[in-house]
Design a binder for these strands. Structure first.
Length: 272
DNA sequence: CCAAGCACCTGACGGC
DNA sequence: TGCCGTCAGGTGCTTG
């Protein structure tokens, strides 16, 4: 699934290509279980034009000209792509036909994702966004560090917890822990202030680099124009269990933390 | 309060 | 070839 960098890249691409376009018609091959029902969703969108697209946490947002906002959560395999008109494909869940003849599609193979439309003012009351923590690229590392030091959970679990910091998923948690030399199982309470500041400084660097490289494509992710990202070629640890550490040459290992596979270097990321 | 486990889905891949 | 188990970028609910 798209984490913060992937959703950011999609949002920027959409903001550049669909802003000003009007939704002329909508076809619904079959919405996902967590989506808003077609009967209420479609009337809110029909005839509206798109004002802007942006991101908060891992949620893709598109504001419409009546003040309502479309919200997409892509979860593991969701895609939102803008391109030329085409016939519906197997995993398409909803298709927005725009006034220039182009198509905005939401597809999701595993159906975990969803799309909902919030009317003016409702977005600010959405429980999900209200609970989400600060944006890691808009918050000082020193401030973020305070949110993990002193807590008894594993540092990896804290990074994945969206109320601690927004937008971090399994890839960027593992990559930032490696860069900071922190073992994923280390408790927040055992991470010193200085090391915690380093962790969030490295998290910012890794997120910025991933955005610059158009995100990470493992199998499903593509940007708003259907293109794969390149940051997967820069992974130090994610998905590299058994391979050699880029820093010390030792063999990378994997453990399960917070229910997720966590790949790390036992030499460069010692437990403390 | 916290952590662990599982549920939600489909598809790809490896082993037999 | 096919069947079975395992795993996958996330979140939310239940259980202990």
């Amino acid at each position: 699934m798209p984490e913060l960098p992937e959703v950011e890249v999609i949002a920027r691409g959409l903001d550049a290509s669909v802003t000003g376009r009007t939704v002329e018609s909508v076809t619904v091959p079959g919405l996902t279980r967590l989506s808003e029902p077609e009967e209420t969703l479609v009337p809110k969108v029909l005839g509206r034009s798109i004002v802007r697209a942006w991101r908060r946490a891992k949620v893709l947002l598109m504001e419409l000209d009546n003040g309502s906002t479309l919200a997409f959560h892509l979860k593991m395999t969701g895609r939102v792509v803008h391109g030329p008109a085409r016939a519906a494909e197997k995993h398409d869940r909803i298709l927005f036909h725009l006034d220039d003849g182009s198509l905005l599609s939401f597809a999701d193979m595993r159906k975990f994702g969803y799309v909902r439309c919030f009317e003016r003012g409702e977005l600010d009351c959405w429980d999900f966004l209200c609970k989400v923590g600060p944006e890691p690229l808009e918050t000082a590392p020193e401030v973020l560090a305070e949110r993990v030091t002193g807590r008894n959970c594993a540092i990896k679990a804290l990074l994945l917890n969206q109320s601690v910091v927004a937008g971090v998923g399994n890839i960027y948690a593992d990559e930032s822990l490696f860069r900071a030399g922190l073992n994923p199982e280390t408790r927040g309470s055992r991470v010193g202030r200085k090391r915690a500041v380093l962790l969030f400084t490295e998290l910012q660097a890794v997120l910025r680099q991933a955005i610059d490289e158009n995100g990470s494509s493992i199998s499903d992710y593509v940007n708003a124009h259907g293109n794969a990202g390149a940051f997967q070629n820069s992974f130090n640890v994610y998905g590299r269990k058994g391979q050699a550490c880029n820093q010390c040459g030792g063999q990378l290992r994997a453990v399960t933390v917070a229910g997720r596979t966590s790949t790390f270097c036992p030499k460069c990321q010692r437990r403390r």
